[in-house]
Design a protein around this nucleic acid. Structure first.
Lengths: 239, 239
DNA sequence: GAGTGGTCTAGACCACGAG
DNA sequence: TCGTGGTCTAGACCACTCA
């Protein structure tokens, strides 16, 4: 039953968790490891692939295999807690933003409930903690609503708060999948490591979509938390 | 740049989406496909692995590779919508339940905020649509709260609604990861297909944990939806 | 037992990174 | 240039499913 690659993966996993292999350290070369475990390189690589999928090992082509730094887990706070993604994370993160004005492609017009070829602002966020990327967010704001020149998140957040008509509903759809090659590259994660994909649509009281955000978070170091509080006194009415 | 396995995967993917290969159909054997694409079996298998991770292909050892049936996406409705998981799904699903009384292991005592070695009821749900499993849920209820003999979900739901003191908070934590081997087996999904992992903790107004649920949903056919409505200052009428 | 996928080998050659 | 990981081959043998 226990295949060789699982035995090897278990051994390496134990070496990592026990501290024999430290974070950031480079593993012996695949050829050396293959010799040590007396397996072929293909088998050894499939063992490393398991660890890679768990986020324990990072492979760098032409350089080596490295023990990933221990993951400081970040939490995306959903629901009532967060009207904007940059305020939705538990830890302060360095982020970069780039705003561009685009013609809405079809999948966005349906999401934002806009006529085809509408003009809207796309803000691309990448959040980092140190050098390692932590998240990826595409945020779409129609109607020239976003600040064009200074892409400061605070401004958008402030405008959302003072909005008239007020925002009335936030829908957040969460799914799990493997990253696209592009996402894996920018997040510097393995293509076999699951990501958490969030689609958030904010609507005002007239039913118009104010903002849509597509977030991608690496599954090994991020999760989303939704808290719902019930009002105790009046729980008689039901829909 | 384009590796052979990606070219092959693209071709097969197109054959599936275009209908040349129909749902449920068996693909040609790996040996035949390897000959057709003039690659080795190892390369062809790595191409199939890509499709497997996308949920397009199901491998059955000793039998063949099959095109998976088109996924009817199910939605887990979180937040205020759902006090119980069996009411939280968009589509009616057949489910089986098994109740056992266990001594709480340590990871559960911290989650439920209970003293060590507490006795609690574990309910294991598996939901199906037709023959294919859709979800997996472990639900833990302390204090002999769950119905012991008839594990009918309605009874638990009813008790939760009439609870005194009333429930006051639901916390749902969502993460994305690869399934364990056991989960992959019971859900009949590939070990390389991401799953959505939900941990829900329900607390009553005294801060006591009423129920904890651990849900695992296959990422290719399930997502979770959280809706938050904001009440405006003035009294808003129900629509 | 025949045919399928699962695992593994012992190489070859290519692509990348750092000195 | 040298050592690394990335891709691929042409087999071998094992484990499973089904008739």
């Amino acid at each position: 039953m226990p295949s060789r690659r699982h035995v090897i993966a278990d051994d390496l996993r134990h070496q990592i968790s026990s501290g024999q292999l430290k974070a950031g350290e480079r593993l012996p070369s695949e050829a050396q490891l293959a010799t040590r475990y007396t397996v072929s390189t293909a088998t050894l690589r499939s063992a490393l692939a398991l660890l890679q999928g768990e986020g324990l090992v990072e492979k760098i082509h032409g350089n080596g295999n490295f023990v990933r730094h221990p993951l400081r887990r970040i939490t995306y706070a959903g629901g009532a807690a967060a009207p904007a993604p940059w305020t939705a994370f538990s830890a302060p993160l360095r982020m970069t933003a780039r705003t561009t004005n685009i013609k809405a492609p079809s999948h966005l017009t349906t999401l934002l409930n806009l006529p085809p070829r509408s003009s809207l602002n796309e803000v691309l966020f990448t959040t980092h903690e140190g050098k390692t990327p932590h998240g990826l967010a595409h945020i779409y704001v129609p109607h020239g609503f976003a600040p064009a020149t200074p892409p400061l998140p605070e401004q958008i957040a402030a405008r959302l708060a003072d909005l008239r008509p007020p925002l009335s509903e936030v829908q957040e759809r969460v799914s799990a999948r493997l990253p696209t090659l592009e996402e894996a590259e920018t997040l510097r994660i393995s293509p076999s490591l699951a990501v958490l994909s969030l689609t958030r649509v904010t609507t005002d009281s007239t039913g118009r979509v104010i903002e849509a955000a597509l977030l991608v978070l690496p599954g090994d170091r991020a999760d989303a938390l939704f808290t719902t509080r019930f009002v105790t006194e009046e729980r008689s009415s039901k829909k």
